Computed example of a mutant assay.
Amino acid sequence: MQLGHCRFSIDKGELTNQETGVVWHLPRAELHVLTLLVEYQGKVVAKPLLESGHEDDSHLSSASVARAIFTLRSFLGPQYETLIETVKGQGYLLRHHRARKESNNKLGPLFIRPLQALLVVIAVVSVSLASLWWFNQVGHSISPTMPLSIDTVSLNSGQQVDVILYSASNTNNELLIGQGQQLAQSISGCAETVWNKAFLSLSHDKQVLNITLRGDYLGQSIIRNLKISDLRQPKKFINSAWLEQVNICDSLPVRLASSHRSQGR
């Protein structure tokens, strides 16, 4: 299915930017959310349905759904991020995207009839009002999902990276805070990196750490999703072996992909 300049393959679980060739293997939450939005395209998908999870009865938190919407919009880019509309107090809606048609008017703009000119003015005003309404809706939709903390890391090059923690609760977040501090310490050792934001959250059972990296490369907004499972006690999601594997300082990403690693029982 075509979404702006991206192509969504439900069977492969991939979202491909056809202009840059970048392929994003959608993580579980993003794939579930986008599949439902496509299935009900043009209709509002209620938040409880988006949070219902998959056929294995797993459940997504409201923060996971909000983060999935954020990363999907980021991949679609500024030109097409408004295809996913926030409907305040209800859920989200995927707009129908139509390619622009070539004008059949051979007489040129100087010969447009008065009625056509009036329709053009009405269309411009309508788009402006719709854009204003959308930005107002986005502003309201973001406020309920506030981050637990934001830690800004400064590299030797002067570059700054924000490490942002999200949690459904304001209590008992020692594990998440500790992992955020470890990631921040690792990023601080980078000479440079394409990433400027790192989002962290724990699954409801605290056995999976979700990390989303966001940055810019050659003028394009890029994202990378990472998941680490650890069934041990005490848990050590982030360690030297994992950091070496994902190459957190990588400054030349060629292909965006989600990775999932399970650690010992």
Rank of each mutant, 00 (worst) to 15 (best):
A117I: 09
P114D: 12
P144F: 02
N210I: 06
T212L: 09
L165D: 03
F135R: 05
L119Q: 09
R214Y: 06
Q137I: 03
L110A: 10
K106C: 10
S154Y: 03
E174D: 13
L176V: 15
Q159M: 04
P109A: 15
P147Y: 08
R214I: 13
K206W: 02
N170W: 05
L175C: 02
N156W: 04
G215A: 03
R214S: 10
L110M: 10
P114K: 09
I122A: 14
G139S: 07
R224G: 01
Q137C: 11
Q137V: 10
Q159A: 12
G219A: 11
L226N: 00
K227W: 03
Q159N: 05
A99Q: 10
R100S: 14
S221E: 12
Q159P: 02
L226I: 02
L115F: 11
V161N: 01
S203H: 01
N225A: 14
D216W: 08
Y217T: 11
R98Y: 12
D162C: 07
C190N: 03
D162S: 09
Y166K: 01
N170P: 05
F199P: 00
L200N: 00
L175G: 00
D151Y: 06
Q181M: 13
F135T: 06
L175V: 04
D230A: 04
V138N: 07
V163G: 02
L165T: 03
R214T: 09
S103M: 08
A117V: 08
S103K: 05
R214A: 15
M146D: 09
S128D: 14
E102G: 14
S149C: 04
I142R: 07
A123W: 06
R232N: 12
S221D: 07
N172G: 07
Y166D: 03
Q220V: 15
G180W: 01
V153C: 04
S188L: 10
Q116A: 12
M146S: 12
P147W: 05
S167F: 01
L218H: 15
P114N: 10
S186T: 15
Q181L: 14
S167L: 01
I122D: 13
L129F: 11
L200E: 00
V127K: 05
Q160P: 02
L226D: 00
A130D: 13
